[in-house]
Each structure stands twice: as C-alpha cells, then as structure tokens.
Design a binder for these strands. Structure first.
Lengths: 243, 243
DNA sequence: CTGGTTATTCTCAAGTCGAGATTGACTCAG
DNA sequence: CTGAGTCAATCTCGACTTGAGAATAACCAG
C-alpha cells in the first residue's frame, strides 16, 4: 500500500518503469499463432519479443495494451477479447533498470499479416509451438498466456472470440483443437456445444457449399449470451498435470 | 515492451510508483475473514485498507508481498499459500501520483490476532461479508480476491491451506462452506473428497473426542499430493452468474 | 440412561461423458 | 455422370458423477 508515500518520497527510490506486454493469439491454418515483433532498438535489438511498451500518464493499463498492439503491428482491428494476464517484475529481468511488466492476453479472429509499426523492425503471426527465442522473460509470459487461453476455453465461451461473427460447429471444434493441441470427438463435441445453455445460437443459415473435400453444408451459429460454460467443456484428461 | 527505453529516458517520464497489496484470507468462527489495517499516514489516514507497500530494489514481487504482510501485521507465520492476483493501475487511483499496485492473494490457517506493525495504526482479521469502507480501490481488489479464492477451491486442493496440518472432512467442509457462503451436503461432500485422487490422505488417526455437541470421533486427514482436483469440486449451480 | 448431534456409508434416479456407429448431403476425380 | 471419400448431424450404450435422502452407529450433555 501507499502508506510509505507520506514518509518516503518515491522520487528518491530507484526508478521503476512500468510496461505492458501483449500475448495476442489467433488461429491460422488450424494452428495457434502468437503475434511477435522484431525489436528495432537495444536491448535485445534484432531479437523477437512480444509487442508492448511504456504506459502513458493518461491511460489505464488495458488501454495501453490495446494501443501498443495497434502501434507496433499496424492492425487497426481491436482484438475480440483482451484480459489481464499477470505481472512480472523481478529484479534483473531488464538489464538496465527495474522494469515491471503487466501482461495482457488478447484473442483475435484470423487477421491480415501485421506490418511493423513504431519501434518494431518486423511483426508477424508465428505458430506458438515453434516460437524462436524471445527477449527478456517473454517466453515465460507466452507460456503463461497459452496456458491461460487453454484454461479459459474450458469454462468460458471465449473460443468464439477466435471465430468470425458466424461459424459452424466444426470451425469451433477446430479452434478448440488448435488451442488445446488435441483432437476432439466430433460427435460428442457437437452434442456438448449445443447442450450448454447460451454458448451458441443458431442463425437459421447454413454454409453456401459443403467443405472443400466433401460433406454436407453445415449450420451457422453465432456466439450466445453466456459468460460461463456450465457444465464446462473440459480438456481430455491431463493425468500428468494433476499431481 | 521495453523498446522505448533506448529512445526515451524513463526518468523523463512522469514517475510511477509500484506497490504490492495483499488480500490475506483465513477462516475464523466459520466465516471468511480478511486482514485489514488502519492507515497511520496520509492519504486516507485512519481509513482501513489492505496491507501493502512499495517494492524494494532487491526483492521480487512475491517477496515484497510476504514482507509487507509480515511487517504490517507482526505475524511471523508465512501464509500457507500466496499467489499473484491482479494489477491495478488506472490514472487517478492514488491522489498524489501514478501508482501501479500488484495484488497478491494469500491463504492462511486460523492465526492469532495480528498486531499493528510499521505504518499501520491497527491490524485485524475482519469478516469479508461485512468489511468497512476501504481506501483506494481496495474494495474492488478484495472482491476480486474473494472471487478468485472461491474459484480456486473448485479446482485445486487449496482449501487445505486454510486448515492445520491434519483436519477432518467436516472441517474441510466448513472451509468450503465459509468461503463459498453456501451449505453443502455432508454425505456427498465426504464421498467427493475421498474420491478425488490426491486431495487428502488418511493419517490413521482420529480426533480424540467427538464434537462438542455430540457425534462420533472423526478420522483425520492431511493434504494429498494433487495440484489439481479432478474431477473438480464445483459450487452449487450459480445460474445467475452464467449469463 | 435419553435425546440430540455428527461421521460415515448406502441407495437410487438423473445427468454427463467417451467411444463408436449410422445416415445422408456434398465434392472431386475419372 | 458415377463412385469413392468426406463430413455434419444424430443416436446408442455403458461407465461415471451428482444431488437428495436415508440408515447406522459413535458420542456428548444433562
């Protein structure tokens, strides 16, 4: 708490910088991708990193995350979902000074390729299971973000944030499979999605054609009004992670 | 990210202070209690608030949380569990300057009354469902902490962090009932706790007497080695929170 | 001893889940 | 145009899990 402020002048403390870093996820070609940028400045110049930057005096933390995402990638579409992930602030995580980073997790539907914006030499969507080395402790942040995303898909309808306005049950299943990295039983998934109240609602429409490799036209759905999935849609058993 | 640091001198930015605040929870007399302190300094002098304070240059964030908890309350027992909760940093949350607060959530077994330590005029355990007005945005932080605690009890064995080394199933049930604020079916709870692998393990002992109002001696258990409860132990349905 | 309290175990019906199979619409190669 | 293969959607079945209620027996207070 701030009790110290009256007694201590914070300006006499060693300076602390506060940044936001964003783990922006999307699905491309059935694989989970993360947005990374090539750093254009020291330290770690030329290395890959998560997009992010300093907070400004007049903006809140989430606002800073959205701004940094837009600035460094040139994407003008705000992500379909953004939430705070965690904060990282151990001494020594930045070689120059104490830096506390507040990370955000963003979900976006398949977006165009980003273009490098301010302070980034390049910006690309990269598959999460094959990311190059990242600067600072960004590999840890990314891992935490991916685990959070996997977990969120279990008990919230946020998978729809990766999809367009309307989608088929199979497209939704591909999102789950991509994020979880596990194949799912199509019939059981279909039954489950339709049985959870408020997860999706039918549009009355179907796709205009069958799939490119055959199969009937699929019904189209849009996101429902549920905020939580109940009962949850759980990942296939992860025995190893229980103990 | 830190790209700006090479171009911008962070010392030229308006100063930002980083604090940690702790939501420390325990169970007393079958009710969930939170540790609050009476502020001894401006601003909000005399108001109640969560314990917390500035991070120091040489400690990490979790270390700062543990230190603040000990310093302001005189409790020398580290909590059984502590985890990061969230960060709060909107402009204007502190009247004097930009303050980013990183909050931690701590679970402790029933501890002695705290004594006011540095910077606190008083420190007490207070029932969470009847807290006085708190300084800054600490009511929001407390609400987030309580919701996190309720949720954690569903899918982790952390309820045992509120109990002593050994405990009976009924004591464990009282913890769940206190945190969730809901009565639970004793027989079903008993069955569930024993059926989840690694939640608890028997000690072979029983209590020395029956309960003060009657009933047989209960078997004693200790925490098992599970990190996650599978299947989870869910709160009774919360229809209203789903939509 | 008596009545009330509590730990522990059972029963039973309803709901959920994983695995597999079926039906019929659709695409594509030949 | 036809046959093979793909896929959406539905159904079946057995194994489990859950909520509600009840039975049993150990133990306390008076």
């Amino acid at each position: 708490m701030e009790e110290f402020l009256a007694g201590y002048d914070p300006r006499r403390y060693p300076p602390v910088a506060v940044t936001v870093d964003v783990v922006a996820l999307t699905i491309r070609d059935r694989r989970l991708h993360v947005l990374i940028v090539e750093r254009g400045v020291e330290p770690y110049e030329g290395a890959w990193a998560l997009p992010g930057g300093f907070i400004r005096p007049d903006e809140d933390l989430a606002g800073a995350a959205v701004r940094e995402l837009a600035e460094e990638t040139g994407l003008d579409t705000a992500p379909a979902h953004i939430e705070q992930l965690a904060s990282y602030g151990g001494p020594g995580r930045d070689p120059r000074m104490r830096v506390v980073s507040i990370s955000y997790l963003a979900f976006a539907p398949d977006l165009p390729d980003p273009r490098a914006g301010t302070d980034a030499a390049a910006a690309v969507w990269h598959p999460v299971d094959d990311v190059p080395r990242l600067a600072f402790d960004h590999e840890r942040i990314l891992a935490d973000g991916v685990e959070r995303a996997r977990s969120k898909l279990e008990y919230t309808p946020l998978a729809t944030a990766f999809a367009g306005d309307t989608f088929t049950i199979s497209e939704l299943r591909l999102i789950y499979e991509s994020v979880w990295g596990t194949p799912l039983h199509a019939g059981n998934f279909h039954r489950k999605v339709l049985s959870v109240p408020g997860f999706v609602e039918g549009t009355g429409e179907t796709t205009q054609t069958g799939g490119s490799r055959g199969g009937p036209r699929a019904k189209l759905y849009r996101a429902g009004d549920a905020r939580l999935l109940h009962p949850a849609l759980l990942r296939p058993s992860r025995e190893d992670e229980i103990r």
